[in-house]
Amino acid sequence: MSGPLMLVTGGSRGIGAAVARLAAAEGWTVAVNYVRDETAANGLVAAIESDGGSAFAVKGDVGSEADVLAVFRAVDRAGPLKALVNNAGIVDRVGRLDTFSAARIERMFRINVLGSFLCAREAVKRMSTAHGGSGGTIVNVSSAAAKFGGPDQYIDYASAKGAIDTMTVGLAKEVIREGVRVCAVRPGIIETEIHASGGQPDRVAEMGPGLPMGRAGTAEEVARAILWLASDAASYSSGAILDVSGGRSIWP
């Protein structure tokens, strides 16, 4: 393992995979976290290595504290952690709150909120100078839905991402004097597989032309914003939440 170490949760597809590829190209050693698709994670690692980069896959469900601890133990064996990208997250089928089960809401918050909190906690324990670390960066992946609320679609997802925004600001204040910067990105409509997993495979094609830029964004565009926040180029930014939403300011 040659470069500084970055952990990307949910790194085998979509925005996470784009972050892993670009980070490796910029010299990071990347820990690609995945929960189910081992083939995709190993394929991404192989592609990174074939391009001269350094990466390894590590399995674990961020919604499980035991799994999170195991992931961080695996990362510890590769070297000191310098960056965490809290990317793992889920959506669910479109609907209104009055149709949601308790199981759906619990799963949404367990993975999207609890998972990010647990990973951030473990990262701080390793990065903070108060814990003997040498500093680092946490970049949380929020969503423009946190601003718009997701009515008639998934207000549970939007609310979970609102919690991530609040955690970003609060944690940044807690650790700003300990060498740890905490920021976030808020993607808008992005071309990734997450829409299909929520039962809307045509969402990007349908919404893209009506967005301010006349198109959806790409995972690589979001990844470049994440990598900037994780880099020394953003050394005076903490608590910042960067919209990567193509100028989208209201729910269409």
Rank of each mutant, 00 (worst) to 15 (best):
M1H: 13
P4R: 04
L5M: 11
T9C: 02
G10H: 10
R13L: 11
G14S: 11
V19D: 00
A25E: 09
E26N: 10
G27I: 00
V35R: 12
D37H: 07
A41E: 04
A41W: 05
A41L: 05
G43H: 03
I48N: 03
D51C: 05
V58E: 13
K59F: 04
E65T: 14
A66L: 10
A66G: 11
A70I: 07
F72V: 07
F72Y: 09
A74F: 10
A83E: 09
L84V: 03
N86W: 02
G89V: 07
I90Y: 01
I90G: 06
D92Q: 12
V94Q: 15
G95D: 02
G95C: 06
L97K: 06
L97E: 05
F100V: 09
F100C: 07
S101P: 01
A103E: 13
E106C: 10
M108K: 01
N112K: 08
L114Y: 11
F117I: 14
L118F: 05
C119Q: 04
A120Y: 00
A123N: 11
K125D: 14
S134L: 09
S134D: 13
N140D: 02
V141E: 01
A144G: 13
A145W: 08
A146N: 02
K147T: 09
F148G: 01
Y154T: 09
I155V: 15
S159A: 13
S159V: 02
D165C: 05
T166A: 14
T168W: 01
V169W: 08
V169Y: 07
V175R: 00
I176Y: 10
R177T: 15
E178M: 08
A184D: 04
A184F: 13
P187N: 07
E193H: 08
I194M: 08
I194G: 06
H195Q: 13
H195E: 13
A196L: 06
R203P: 07
A205N: 07
A205F: 02
M207I: 14
G214V: 13
G214M: 12
T218Y: 01
T218E: 01
A219E: 01
V222S: 01
R224T: 10
R224E: 14
I226S: 00
I226E: 02
D232Q: 08
A233S: 12
A234R: 07
A234H: 06
A234N: 06
S237E: 12
S238P: 04
A240V: 15
I241Q: 14
D243S: 14
V244I: 10
G246N: 14
R248H: 12
S249W: 14
P252N: 04
